[in-house]
Amino acid sequence: MGHVHSGALGWVAGISIGAIYHLMTRLFHTEMFSERLVNFHFWTATIGTVVYIVAMWVSGIMQGLMWRAYDEYGTLAYTFVESVDAMHPYYAMRAVGGMIFLLGAIVMLFNVLMTVRKSVSEGSLAKARTLPAAA
């Protein structure tokens, strides 16, 4: 869980978000509505991902160690449900990390929509279309 989400949130989502911001300026021939919100999104995505994967990584390793832990008599030290219970705080931490990440995504949606509106009101897209194509 920790490993797959560091890839999903850190790499796949990171690349996709960067591509969206880049393409917005290219496709609509304008600057983003707010650079500051883009920076804000960068930090929410980064911090959200870190909180999320730290929680998952720690709880995953803890779960594995609990499952295979023995007591002094050589019998299993924990029941399955004790491992479920022990993971509770990490799942709460995961939810917080996910929330921060989601907040960034909502900010991006707002920023993108405002950029489209800005492009329409400026007429930058229409202007770009009438320009002769670059060779």
Partner: peptide, 8 residues
Amino acid sequence: PFRDEKER
């Protein structure tokens, strides 16, 4: 096929 899985 691990010891802990077998016991659990």
